[in-house]
Amino acid sequence: MTTPDLLRPLAILAAMRDIPGWLEDDEAELLIAAAAHVTRGGGARRLVEIGSYQGRSTIVLAATIRALSPDSRVFAIDPHEGTVGSADARLNHGSPTFDAFVANIAAAGVAAFVEPVRSLSYEARWNDTIDLLFIDGLHDRFNVERDYRHFARFLNPDAIVLFHDYAAYYPGVVAFVDTLVAQEGWSIAAHAGSMVMLYRGA
């Protein structure tokens, strides 16, 4: 008899905390809830993450689908060049992160549920539907919008979109998310820390 893989949010948060990054516990809890929401109907789902860094949020998403929807996959898109921040304010350039990313998802036991895409988001080739889109790349308005527009046409009608760093310290993220809500039929479903979750609806 196969032992079931139970969803254990506290264990996911504990594993996440060992990984360098900026995702806080309440934001990770919202990611868990979002991944659980899009997988609730069964079947294989595609979760696309833009901006993986060393795998902190990737592990949260992948551990959730491992427990709830093992046929689903997280597509983790990042060039892993070590550049973070905002192009209209300050960019920080660190060491390449791909080796650390691969090691971290393997150590967390979720590598089988992650498809790394080592690419700039807008250069990534994509032709499949998307059930969850999580945008956490560069945080200026131009790059946030470019990330979203490149994948928006692939979103399922009931897909959800999450943005990290929806906060005053990154006004470009706030401006673009507010535009989606005001002009493009999206509504805010939930907000935790600087994480905001959108769905299509009134």
Results as ranks from 00 to 15, higher is better:
residue 116 P to G: 12
residue 4 P to V: 00
residue 150 H to I: 05
residue 145 E to P: 08
residue 181 V to M: 08
residue 193 G to W: 02
residue 183 Q to A: 11
residue 49 E to M: 06
residue 49 E to D: 13
residue 132 L to H: 02
residue 174 V to M: 11
residue 28 A to H: 00
residue 70 P to L: 09
residue 21 G to R: 02
residue 113 F to M: 07
residue 73 R to Y: 07
residue 53 Y to L: 14
residue 36 A to K: 08
residue 109 G to Y: 07
residue 1 M to L: 09
residue 88 D to A: 12
residue 171 P to R: 05
residue 155 L to T: 08
residue 57 S to K: 01
residue 6 L to D: 02
residue 19 I to M: 06
residue 130 I to P: 08
residue 84 V to C: 08
residue 31 L to G: 05
residue 28 A to G: 15
residue 22 W to M: 15
residue 121 S to D: 05
residue 92 N to Q: 14
residue 140 D to G: 07
residue 69 S to K: 06
residue 79 P to N: 06
residue 107 A to Q: 13
residue 77 I to W: 08
residue 93 H to A: 07
residue 196 V to K: 01
residue 96 P to F: 11
residue 184 E to V: 00
residue 47 L to P: 06
residue 121 S to F: 01
residue 145 E to Q: 15
residue 64 T to H: 02
residue 138 L to Q: 12
residue 4 P to N: 04
residue 199 Y to I: 03
residue 141 R to L: 11
residue 30 L to Y: 00
residue 96 P to K: 07
residue 84 V to S: 10
residue 80 H to D: 08
residue 35 A to N: 02
residue 15 A to F: 00
residue 101 F to D: 07
residue 87 A to S: 15
residue 193 G to N: 08
residue 113 F to G: 03
residue 172 G to E: 03
residue 97 T to P: 11
residue 173 V to P: 12
residue 114 V to R: 06
residue 7 L to Y: 04
residue 90 R to N: 11
residue 150 H to C: 05
residue 163 F to R: 01
residue 150 H to D: 05
residue 169 Y to P: 00
residue 139 H to N: 13
residue 68 L to K: 07
residue 42 G to C: 06
residue 97 T to C: 12
residue 4 P to A: 09
residue 46 R to E: 10
residue 8 R to S: 11
residue 174 V to R: 09
residue 132 L to K: 02
residue 182 A to I: 02
residue 118 R to N: 04
residue 20 P to L: 05
residue 56 R to A: 11
residue 75 F to R: 06
residue 37 H to L: 12
residue 132 L to T: 10
residue 103 A to E: 14
residue 106 A to H: 13
residue 31 L to D: 01
residue 30 L to M: 15
residue 30 L to F: 01
residue 130 I to Q: 04
residue 198 L to N: 02
residue 11 A to W: 00
residue 43 G to W: 04
residue 39 T to G: 05
residue 115 E to H: 08
residue 3 T to C: 04
residue 195 M to I: 09
residue 72 S to A: 12
residue 191 H to R: 15
residue 201 G to Q: 11
residue 88 D to H: 12
residue 12 I to C: 10
residue 142 F to Q: 11
residue 200 R to W: 09
residue 18 D to S: 13
residue 87 A to K: 14
residue 157 P to F: 01
residue 126 W to P: 05
residue 92 N to R: 15
residue 180 L to K: 06
residue 163 F to C: 10
residue 113 F to D: 05
residue 51 G to Y: 00
residue 198 L to Y: 07
residue 36 A to D: 12
residue 168 A to C: 01
residue 79 P to Y: 06
residue 109 G to T: 04
residue 58 T to N: 02
residue 54 Q to S: 11
residue 188 I to D: 06
residue 89 A to Y: 13
residue 159 A to Q: 08
residue 175 A to F: 03
residue 14 A to E: 15
residue 29 E to T: 13
residue 172 G to S: 09
residue 35 A to F: 02
residue 170 Y to W: 14
residue 92 N to A: 11
residue 4 P to W: 01
residue 26 D to G: 03
residue 72 S to V: 13
residue 86 S to H: 05
residue 167 A to W: 03
residue 107 A to T: 07
residue 175 A to Y: 01
residue 55 G to L: 04
